[in-house]
Design a protein around this nucleic acid. Structure first.
Lengths: 346, 346
DNA sequence: ATGGTGTGCTGGAACGTTTGAGCAAATCCT
DNA sequence: AGGATTTGCTCAAACGTTCCAGCACACCAT
């Protein structure tokens, strides 16, 4: 029994009439307000269930000035940059927390950024959501800067050094890429390294490159940097370029690029991991299933997203952030076949 | 300038005061109503932009009885069944259409189904969304049945023969799996086949199994069925079982299972595609990157999702469905390395 | 008897928007 | 000139909810 006689959803007023109480009393009863009697509460709950009453979210949101919903915002600039898998992990993590808070999850992407105010700004301001989690945008995305400046509750996923006032959750990409590079140098004795970087207008790409440079500098080994765009295709392209040169270790700034380059280099006759060792970054799925599997840095995207969502709910509720304003989660190196730490599949 | 002096977002009333018109006139001006003068419209638009006015969605939804939002519902039963990649394709497709309609996209999963009314039913009834796209649920999910019965606008993704009155978009799994099986029989001369099925309380798994059986029966070759659950792990498990038996062709009902089984069988010394040919199903990403890559059936998940979203908006707007009530999209066989159609990576 | 406190409820305003009814002035038709 | 139509706007109600102020009554202490 979902809709009343007039064909519209059941309202509080109908529940009130059916239970012989006022609308206010019913509202309070359903909220378990202490000033409503035991019996009345029970009767209201029974009647509401019978009629299939569900509170209208617009009415509630209008009055209570809360939507009980948060958005995950994906600036389209990064939609191509970050592959599918990252986003899925983020969604999974955020969703868990959203469910715990009995809220709704809205996905908002930006159809075209040139077109005046970003679409996600409208979502935020319209009150359709109470706050947003923003997945890594390019370093100078004006929309993000404005969103943060507007004072609406926002938690950034990634490192945003130019927005120090914003709450963020990220990993130490620089230290991680340094770790990965040192693995190739120390454990596998490599001395002639190449780094495939992401697009250098992305903080993530910058940090990972810097970590690579830290490691080669300290170890005093050779280290070149080639800029890609985080796509498998750019890995292919750079792989073809590299096939004609000499080097013994490849540090790719994500797994897609590592895979693209690995495919090309293997096709060119390069034996992996004997002639060449490779390390990727992210561990969102791809690196585990290739052959050889790709040694990589595991980024705990789901945990990051969970934490970000928790911070966001803290922010929305007005209580302060419980954790740090700029949380940095630990990463770890996952040794696999592409550096020779585990055997190649048969 | 996003919020007015009182610290709250700018409302229609403030725009009205600032432009010397009534609230109604401003509302109408912003909707480009013919009965509002040219000059007034321009002035209102200028003032609204200056003040950073964005319509409150709760107010609008309450009055207009429309949320301008749709949900994508993922029953948690299928969250494990369908891997990450499928969902991403669905999201991408739906999102495109949602943006075209200037609407919002809500993701709704079901925290725990035993717990009375499904969570997604609440989302629908609360008016937070105008309709929903439901991704394939198990065959007897009571929540879906109730949702469809409630008369709320819903489009199902997948085949739901027991819900003939519901609008749906799917592929012909049976014909597709038959095609895949015939490929192994005709092109590769195989005569002793095994099918790894999905969980047989899912329509998709049933249809694919039936397609396999159609093909082996017609060709008069041997065909066994082993039931898995669409997970890579179940592929591993069944792969280990199969490693001790004789057969020359494997028809897996998705790519994850194909990959799991392939890994085990290769580890057991089986040469693919020489000793054994394998075909998967889905082509959501995995099958392209393994080595050997997996021959598979390409499921156009993104197109399906686009179409489903378009149907849903038709349904919501009250105009009839433009396409068929039960759309079936074509699939195609993608020959790769696991059946010997393309070379193994070097 | 009087004031004080607690309990259980009702009335009504408010949230921001849309929209039908209505109205004054301008314009048109004959 | 007189009526009909058009133009450009205003008024007020309505959407469904929450919650503050208030009221009636019962109970207690003085």
């Amino acid at each position: 029994m979902a809709r009343s006689r007039n064909g519209r959803p059941v309202t509080l007023r109908e529940v009130a009439e059916a239970s012989g109480l006022s609308v206010s009393a019913v509202s309070m009863a359903l909220q378990d307000h202490p000033r409503i009697g035991r019996e009345s509460k029970e009767r209201v709950r029974r009647v509401a269930a019978e009629l299939g009453y569900v509170a209208n979210s617009a009415g509630r949101a209008l009055r209570a000035r809360r939507a009980d919903a948060v958005a995950v915002i994906v600036p389209n600039t990064s939609q191509h940059v970050f592959g599918h898998a990252y986003f899925m992990h983020v969604l999974t993590g955020v969703n868990d927390v959203v469910i715990e808070h009995d809220a709704q999850l809205v996905i908002s992407t930006n159809p075209d950024e040139s077109h005046g105010a970003a679409a996600y700004e409208r979502v935020m301001r319209s009150g359709y959501v109470d706050g947003a989690i923003v997945t890594s945008a390019s370093i100078d995305d004006p929309g993000i800067t404005r969103l943060v400046a507007s004072g609406l509750p926002v938690v950034l996923l990634g490192r945003f050094p130019h927005l120090p006032e914003a709450v963020s959750v990220g990993v130490d990409d620089r230290a991680a890429e340094r770790l990965a590079t040192e693995h190739l140098i120390r454990e596998h004795g490599r001395t002639d390294l190449v780094h495939l970087s992401g697009p250098l207008d992305h903080q993530t790409a910058i940090d990972r490159r810097d970590g690579f440079l830290d490691a080669v500098e300290e170890a005093g080994v050779s280290g070149r940097v080639l800029e890609g765009d985080f796509s498998e295709e750019s890995g292919h392209r750079l792989g073809r370029v590299l096939a004609t040169t000499r080097f013994d270790g490849l540090v790719a700034s994500n797994d897609e690029m590592a895979f693209g380059a690995m495919t090309e280099l293997a096709a060119a006759g390069c034996r992996i991991p004997d002639d060449l060792v490779i390390v990727g970054f992210d561990d969102f799925g791809l690196s585990r299933v290739t052959n050889p599997s790709i040694t990589t840095i595991h980024v705990p995207a789901e945990s990051m997203a969970r934490l970000a969502a928790e911070q966001l709910f803290d922010l929305v509720s007005g209580s302060g952030i419980t954790g740090e304003r700029h949380a940095v989660l630990p990463v770890e190196l996952v040794p696999r076949g592409s550096c020779g730490c585990t055997a190649r599949h048969p």
